[in-house]
Write a protein that binds this DNA or RNA. Structure first.
Length: 483
RNA sequence: GCUCCGGUGGUGUAGUCCGGCCAAUCAUUUCGGCCUUUCGAGCCGAAGACUCGGGUUCGAAUCCCGGCCGGAGCACCA
């Protein structure tokens, strides 16, 4: 008897089709820079599915285009993976495996599935676009092997190995695509040792098969590639993994590609790969966005093929619900204005205690000395308006003078006072907050912040959440997360 | 231009395969209110969507056709 499954609210990720026992997934970035939010989606989704079904997650570094490899990227990718808390079961680097691709290329030639094409690129395209085969297509296996063995001696552009698909395929992109090519450039890892490099469609297919990948999660920009790759699976009679394509993830305000970001860094426009304006994982981390927020976001977006646009607001909302509980509170005074309150009763002078977190009193209290001389946020100062300095006194500005008004919170409420933060005039720490647009807000924080450690994420009351990034010359450098 | 794919409130999602339980889910957002020694959090309330036009059907977000809009791919990048 089949139970009615409709109308059952699905929580989280949709089911993966065709799961039989353990699954094997891979995350396969190109090492052209650090990971960005788009990579995070692929990495996190793969990770989540492996956790859900059990199996194995492989990290595969696709560095088969020597010109597009950033030597630093290998390490940056590892760091970013670690920050995301993704544990991989196996790591392979494609530039270690070139001999494997050579071996399978030769096999494919013998199977009649590939041929060595020496046509000029433009010429080939012209023929291909009219569904016409080029002369090389009819070469026999022996001639192809001869050419293949000679490929080592050829220079860039002289020859490619093509997978024989269907020259009449209605999608021109599928017709006889390249599998191997000559590259005359130094590879950051292997130097000049090799000059024949596989094209992505070839190395990916060989690796996915050899590594036992069961499901391939990739962006829909690979739709045509999946179809191309099926030809190779067929020639070798390999099982085809389940291909799942997801749509583009657009981030509002971040149109920056890795290459544009690199340019900007080089020109000094950005401070580095972790500049708060960039969409890299490290920039997001620096700003105090927690990985859990990213996980929730990616789980919610899932793997559907339609594009989605993610706003910072969305990420902030997710992050806020995490930080709200986690972050302790501190006073930050930007645009500080020194104020001496007159007629303060001696009884209130001393150490004021205020909870690190209003909902978790067991975390303890900050201690702030109060003697009537304070710094306030300039914008908070208004004539004739009663202000309550949190947990201290009520006061009012009359003319140029700051005068004591009353003591209790009740009196502040009666007077309709605004409740504001403050710090002692003579006992404070210098601070600056780097905002998401890289502008800097200068100010002072309360002395208790001396206990903070780099990496701590706090809420600066009435200002927002921020992460302590660095302590430089007794100055605390925060990065702003969000309100 | 050719090939392929998609379109549910501002945003993200569920539902679409197998039409009725959908005057459409949940979240976020926005706006009110309450509460509160943060303009935060919490609580209450409100706003807001099936791209359009035909067709099939007793019945369409769901199936079919067309338009519109959007996206992806289209020499040796992944």
């Amino acid at each position: 008897m089949v139970v009615e499954e409709k109308r059952v609210q699905q929580k989280g990720l949709s089911d993966l089709p065709e799961v039989h026992g353990d699954i094997v997934l891979r995350f396969a970035p190109n090492p052209s820079g650090p990971l960005h939010i788009g990579h995070a989606r692929a990495a996190i989704l793969n990770n989540e599915y492996v956790k859900k079904y059990g199996g194995k997650l492989i990290l595969r570094i696709e560095d088969t285009d020597p010109r597009r490899v950033d030597p630093d990227a290998y390490q940056m990718i590892d760091e970013d993976m670690e920050w995301m808390g993704i544990k991989i079961d196996q790591k392979v680097i494609q530039s270690d495996r070139l001999h494997i691709y050579y071996e399978y290329a030769e096999k494919l030639i013998i199977l009649g599935g590939a041929y060595m094409c020496t046509c000029e690129g433009g010429e080939f395209k012209k023929l291909k676009d009219q569904s016409e085969a080029c002369p090389c297509r009819d070469l026999n296996v022996e001639d192809n092997l001869k050419r293949w063995e000679n490929m080592e001696n050829m220079s860039e552009g002289e020859a490619v190995l093509r997978v024989k698909t269907d020259i009449g395929h209605k999608n021109p992109a599928i017709r006889d695509y390249a599998a191997m090519r000559v590259v005359d450039a130094e590879h950051p890892r292997t130097g000049k040792k090799y000059k024949i490099y596989p094209m992505m469609n070839f190395s990916v297919t060989v690796d996915d098969h050899l590594l036992g990948v069961t499901h391939v999660l990739r962006g829909k920009d690979h739709l045509a590639n999946s179809e191309k790759q099926k030809y190779i699976y067929e020639y070798f009679r390999w099982d085809v993994p389940v291909f799942i394509h997801y749509g583009r993830l657009k981030m509002e305000d971040i149109a920056l590609s890795t290459s544009k970001a690199r340019e900007g860094i080089k020109k000094g426009l950005y401070s580095g790969w972790d500049d708060p304006r960039l969409g890299t994982i490290r920039a997001i981390a620096k700003r105090g966005i927690r990985k859990e927020a990213l996980y929730e976001l990616m789980n919610e977006i899932g793997v559907k093929i339609a594009d989605s646009t993610v706003s910072w607001k969305k990420i902030y909302g997710l992050n806020r619900s995490i930080l709200e509980k986690a972050a302790n509170r501190y006073f930050f005074i930007w645009n500080p204005e020194e104020v001496k309150i007159e007629d303060i009763p001696d009884s209130v002078k001393g150490i004021i205690e205020r909870p690190l977190h209003p909902d978790f009193l067991d975390r303890g209290y900050r201690k702030i000395p109060f003697n009537g001389e304070v710094c306030l946020v300039k914008e908070d100062i208004k004539e004739n308006k009663v202000l309550r300095l949190m947990d201290a006194v009520n006061m009012v500005f009359k003319g140029r003078k700051a005068i004591f008004h009353s003591l209790s919170f009740e009196e502040a409420k009666e007077a309709g006072a605004q409740i504001i933060q403050w710090i002692p005039k003579d006992d404070n720490l210098k601070a600056e907050v780097v905002m998401p647009d890289a502008s800097i807000v200068d100010g002072l924080v309360e002395p208790f912040c001396i206990n903070l450690k780099v990496g701590d994420i706090v809420q600066l009351e009435r200002f927002g959440f921020a992460r302590l990034d660095e302590i430089r010359d007794d100055k605390l450098i925060f990065y702003f997360a969000h309100k």
